[in-house]
Simulated assay, not measured.
Amino acid sequence: MNRRWLGWAALGLAVAATVAFVPPLLLPGEGGSAGLSPAPPSPSAFWVSLHAADEANLRSGARAIDCASCDGGRRVGYIGGPNTLAIRVAGVPTAGERTLLIVYETQDPRTLKVAVGDGPVHALSLAGAGDYLIPARTSLTVFVPAGTSWIRFFNDAGDAPDINRIELR
């Protein structure tokens, strides 16, 4: 009987501690009994994840390739020389510097050039994971104007890595 009483006491203590130290869960649109409401998003808060193989993107010579290990099951390859990829980013609330994360695949070291709209060209020397089936990631800071813009991926001097997806934060 003592063991059972100890078990119930421990459970009661755990529930009391949880109530005392864990804030209540408030779902969007609920005021909750605590009178808390979610903070409004910052006007500059913006995050988007886009797949390179999306049909809305512009590919000049580059083409979508099936890829079992890629997000979304496809990536865009054959970028380089005259072949380019441009990914449309819409709904950016305010202009400013953002972090661009690029998920790519390459077997050999390659150079990737990136430009947002008519902005400066960023040249990245990427080694990758040494295999087209192993995604790698890199990031850089870019200036993104408010509204809609295009992020171009190219290498006019040689082959570029394949692009799987991007995130813009």
Rank of each mutant, 00 (worst) to 15 (best):
L168R: 02
G80N: 06
P23E: 07
L50V: 11
P43M: 10
A136K: 10
E167C: 00
I87W: 01
P40I: 06
V116A: 13
A160H: 06
A90K: 12
G29H: 04
R165P: 00
A146M: 10
D162G: 14
W47L: 03
G128N: 11
L85M: 04
N83E: 13
H51G: 14
A86G: 10
P41K: 14
G12C: 15
A52N: 02
L6G: 10
A127D: 12
S60N: 15
A62M: 11
N57P: 07
P24L: 05
F21T: 09
T94E: 13
S60W: 09
E167A: 07
S44L: 14
E97C: 00
W5K: 15
Y104N: 02
D66I: 03
T141R: 15
I65F: 06
C67N: 11
L101Q: 04
S49V: 07
P109F: 07
S49A: 07
G31K: 11
G77M: 06
I166D: 02
H122D: 08
W5P: 01
G12A: 14
L6C: 09
T111Q: 14
D54M: 03
K113L: 04
S69R: 12
L50R: 05
A56N: 05
A53C: 13
I166M: 08
A160S: 11
L85T: 14
N57G: 07
L11Q: 05
V114I: 11
P145I: 13
G96F: 00
N155T: 04
P23H: 00
G80P: 01
L112D: 05
G72F: 08
R4I: 10
G35H: 07
L36A: 08
R169G: 03
A45L: 11
G158W: 02
W5F: 12
G32V: 00
P28Q: 15
A16P: 01
L50K: 12
G73E: 11
L101G: 08
T138L: 10
D159P: 00
L140K: 08
L36E: 06
P24A: 12
L168W: 04
L168H: 09
T148A: 15
A62P: 03
G31T: 14
G31P: 00
W150P: 10
D66V: 02
P23S: 09
R4H: 15
P93N: 13
G81P: 04
N83G: 07
V22R: 02
A62K: 02
P24D: 08
A14N: 11
A14E: 08
R152L: 13
G117I: 05
W150D: 13
T111F: 03
L50I: 13
D66Y: 02
F46N: 03
W8T: 13
D156T: 12
A52L: 02
A52F: 06
